[in-house]
Simulated scan of single mutants.
Amino acid sequence: MTAQKRLGILTSGGDAPGLNAAIRALARTAMNRYGMEVIGIEQGYRGLIENRYRIMGEQDISGILPRGGTILGASREKPFKDSEWRTADGSGAVESIKKNYKDLRLDCLAVLGGNGSQTTANLLTQEGLHVIGIPKTIDNDIAHNDMSFGFHTAVDIATEAVDRLHTTAASHNRVMIIEVMGHKAGWLALYAGIAGGSDIIIIPEIPYRIEAITAHLQARKKQGKNFSVITIAEGARSYAERDMSKKALRESRKGMTGSIGYRLAAEITAASGAEARVTVLGYVQRGGTPSGYDRILATGFGAAAATFAAKNRYGVMAALQEGMIKPVPLTKVADKIKKVPKDHPMILTAYDIGTCFADTAY
């Protein structure tokens, strides 16, 4: 029934732990259970534009389960936004993708990626391509999906960093600030902050007030605690910035030196006189070996996506919901961000144990 099907696979956007596990499960299920031929597209959507691919076999996916990164390579190409893109023959990006999809005789394209990648996947579906999405992001911010692979490993890495900063903070009576990824949503900062016992957690969903931070630091000093650890998401905003558009925010921050963590450190020192130091984790968060949980989750996503392809369930993303992996229409995922609700159980738990979110008293 499915022996003649050809399944294309590409990984798009930033890399995340678990991508190779998902590729392995997707390819193995497609080849061994459903008899499909699997085509690996290199360097994400760029590879599909430029027709860079390879036919995959068991030798390509052997031993890749614990490896970080992606064996197919990735890029941040946005074919529907890059209107100036032209291939050697003068074709536009979307036109080239459609032509190469047809020339490769693909029956389906599996896209492993985050929000932007799934939005592009939805647009390609509207162009007539058969596409299935698999959620990948360390930010855990894909709509209608309880957990994305890559997030768990990133939390582990960030938690270890918070743990290590505690000892330095205590030794030198300093305020240690650790900046983690999360441009629009604060899931990573929230989970790592709680797991690492951060005294203050700052996320994009809850604009911070420097007055609340200094008050919390002073309260800790009165308790004999002369150090503090703060976990902040890269997309955090101050209370004054809470309603700014992206353009207005960019304009207001033109004179800002460094990232948000460094600005916060300067604000804390100016307001309280406390000595503050900053650690920006950066790409360390999404590199290296995936955790056991991320390997399991990615394997489940990959196997489910192959089954969706075999059953002609196109235009969907494999999503984890209440412990089950289900097909969710890409139209529900595209252009949406899963933000941390202010009444999320982990937010309430953090408040209960005395964590400060740099807003007002809860």
Score class of each variant (00 low, 15 high):
361 A>R: 09
229 V>L: 07
273 G>L: 12
201 I>V: 06
66 P>K: 09
241 E>A: 14
244 M>S: 12
310 A>C: 01
263 R>L: 14
59 Q>G: 07
193 G>S: 01
355 T>M: 02
199 D>L: 00
337 I>H: 13
153 T>A: 06
309 A>R: 04
291 S>V: 05
165 L>P: 01
200 I>L: 04
342 K>M: 08
100 N>W: 04
251 E>P: 00
34 Y>M: 02
76 R>G: 13
345 P>L: 11
217 L>M: 04
96 S>Q: 08
156 D>F: 03
106 L>R: 07
240 A>D: 15
119 T>V: 09
53 Y>N: 08
66 P>Y: 10
218 Q>Y: 01
121 A>P: 11
228 S>K: 09
348 L>W: 01
286 R>S: 07
275 E>V: 12
127 E>F: 05
173 N>E: 13
118 Q>G: 05
196 G>A: 07
64 I>C: 07
5 K>C: 04
302 G>I: 06
111 V>L: 06
207 P>D: 08
77 E>R: 12
291 S>L: 07
142 I>L: 13
182 G>L: 08
81 K>F: 11
335 D>T: 11
357 F>R: 00
125 T>D: 11
272 S>L: 10
86 R>H: 10
100 N>E: 04
121 A>D: 12
10 L>H: 06
300 G>I: 00
93 A>M: 03
301 F>K: 03
101 Y>V: 09
349 T>F: 15
268 I>Q: 12
267 E>Y: 07
91 S>C: 08
147 M>N: 12
176 M>V: 10
338 K>Y: 08
77 E>S: 13
90 G>A: 08
81 K>P: 00
269 T>R: 15
317 M>Y: 05
118 Q>S: 13
9 I>A: 05
198 S>M: 01
323 G>A: 10
276 A>G: 08
352 D>N: 13
198 S>V: 01
204 P>G: 12
26 L>R: 01
99 K>F: 06
34 Y>E: 01
148 S>H: 04
305 A>P: 03
168 T>H: 03
13 G>I: 02
213 I>H: 02
238 S>N: 12
80 F>Y: 15
273 G>M: 11
196 G>W: 02
187 W>R: 13
212 A>H: 00
169 A>C: 07
173 N>L: 06
58 E>L: 10
352 D>I: 00
136 K>C: 03
355 T>C: 02
129 L>I: 09
349 T>L: 14
190 L>N: 05
348 L>P: 03
358 A>G: 10
339 K>S: 14
233 A>H: 10
359 D>E: 13
258 G>V: 06
241 E>G: 12
175 V>T: 14
248 A>Y: 05
230 I>E: 11
82 D>A: 12
9 I>W: 04
246 K>D: 15
321 Q>S: 14
88 A>N: 10
153 T>V: 02
109 L>V: 05
120 T>E: 14
128 G>Q: 10
176 M>D: 06
85 W>N: 04
132 I>E: 11
357 F>Q: 00
245 S>C: 09
16 A>I: 05
60 D>M: 09
292 G>Y: 10
211 E>G: 03
179 E>F: 02
246 K>H: 14
210 I>F: 03
145 N>G: 04
320 L>K: 11
41 I>W: 10
122 N>A: 13
29 T>H: 03
279 T>W: 06
280 V>S: 08
285 Q>W: 06
292 G>D: 12
53 Y>G: 02
218 Q>L: 04
276 A>D: 09
